[in-house]
Amino acid sequence: TLITWLWVAPLSQVGAHLALRASAPYLLMLQGPPQRAIIVGMNEQGAALANRIHETRYSKIELSGFFDDRSPNRLNQPTNSQLLGRLRELPGFVKENRIQFIYLSLPMASQPRILHVLDELKDTTASIYFVPDMFITDLIQGRSGTVCGTPVISVCESPFTGSNGIIKRASDIVLSLLILALISPLLLVIALAIKLDSPGPVIFKQRRYGLDGEEILVYKFRSMRVCEDGESIRQAQKGDSRITRIGAFLRKNSLDELPQFVNVLQGRMSIVGPRPHAVAHNEIYRNLIKGYMIRHKVKPGITGWAQVNGYRGETRTLDKMQARIDHDLDYLRNWSLRLDLHIILKTIMVVFRDRDVY
């Protein structure tokens, strides 16, 4: 039974998949002719919708074209689409050509025009949809939803809601326990080396911003002769006299970050996420970089998307910090467990070849 199942199951899955792909066009034909649609507003989101309709292989929507009051030379006309006329010609065209779907892609600022178009279309049987002008802002996990039955659209949201939050936390716990079990002898050796190298505590605790901007204590192996955690903190630089001999080696190879796996088990941090900055640095950069605090919609990480893309270590200039924040926000937009695993593997390679960490 087991041997038969081992070859029958995959063959059945592949066969069913190929059969469904071959029969899909005919199944769509059984549902009737394509449904004709037009888009009102030849702008960025309208063009994006048109391209999606054309690219979707098994869509039953047949896009007739666009309506817009602007002259053709002012429009961003997408491929495979044409301008059919101005808004005043819209109701007549819909009735004459039996249009079934109308997508209103007008800017939010054009409320009077939208209301006028809706009023004119009351004499048709077409289904009308509003395409929100979401390109006016930088979406972080944009999606639709309801609040007590009222439709809402999220503009800035954490990717770790619902099942995603459970997956993220479970992967953090499992990987942290596994890694700590493997590196426990190394942790003891490093602790002993720090104690013998210079006076002071083995573990350095520093206040940083965590989830929702709440202060957390982050653990690190002490790599400096000082334990700065005040209103003003100077970033480590090349040849920094504060760094101890063993500390230079630890920082170079990111071994000083290993105690943060304990922070992960505590629930203060994740293995992958935006790297936390000292509170003093946060207060500086939140006033200089727009959207800086959005990175705190998730737990900070031991490693992150910015760090594996060349923004690890010292950030001497504002544009370097801006690039780091841009990568952090990109991570929030595109999170997946696969991306987390990719970052973890890439971090291992980056640590061995990076020369910009002091």
Rank of each mutant, 00 (worst) to 15 (best):
T1K: 13
L2H: 14
V8K: 12
P10G: 04
V14I: 15
G15I: 00
L18E: 11
A19Y: 10
R21A: 03
A22P: 05
S23C: 13
S23D: 06
P25Q: 06
L27T: 05
L27N: 06
M29R: 15
G32S: 01
P34L: 01
I38Y: 03
I39C: 06
N43L: 04
G46D: 06
A48R: 12
A48H: 09
R52C: 08
I53S: 02
E62H: 13
D68T: 04
P72K: 09
P72H: 00
S81R: 04
Q82H: 13
Q82G: 08
L83K: 10
L83N: 10
L83E: 05
L84F: 10
G85A: 11
R88K: 14
E89P: 01
P91R: 11
P91L: 07
F93D: 07
V94H: 10
V94Y: 11
N97P: 06
F101G: 02
I102A: 03
S105L: 03
P112V: 03
I114F: 01
I114N: 00
L115G: 07
D119F: 09
E120A: 11
K122H: 13
D123Y: 08
T125N: 14
S127K: 15
S127C: 08
V131E: 07
M134I: 15
F135C: 10
I136C: 08
Q141R: 15
G142V: 06
R143T: 07
S144Q: 11
C148M: 15
V152L: 01
V152H: 01
C156R: 02
F160V: 03
T161Y: 02
G162C: 00
N164F: 00
N164H: 11
G165L: 04
I167V: 15
S171D: 07
L177Y: 07
L180C: 14
L182G: 13
S184E: 09
P185H: 07
L186M: 12
A193V: 01
A193K: 07
L196H: 00
S198E: 01
P201V: 05
P201A: 09
I203C: 05
K205W: 05
R207S: 14
R208P: 05
G210L: 10
V218C: 14
V218G: 06
R222W: 11
R225N: 14
V226P: 09
S232V: 14
S232I: 10
Q237M: 08
F249I: 02
D256A: 11
L258D: 11
Q266V: 00
V279K: 14
V279D: 10
N282M: 06
R286T: 13
N287S: 13
L288G: 00
I289P: 03
K290G: 02
G291Y: 05
M293Q: 12
K297C: 10
K297H: 11
V298D: 05
P300T: 07
T303D: 03
V308A: 07
N309H: 14
Y311S: 04
G313K: 05
T315C: 06
D319M: 07
Q322F: 02
R324C: 05
D326V: 09
H327T: 01
L329P: 05
L329H: 06
L332E: 12
R333V: 10
H342A: 09
I343H: 02
L345Y: 03
I348F: 07
M349A: 13
V351K: 08
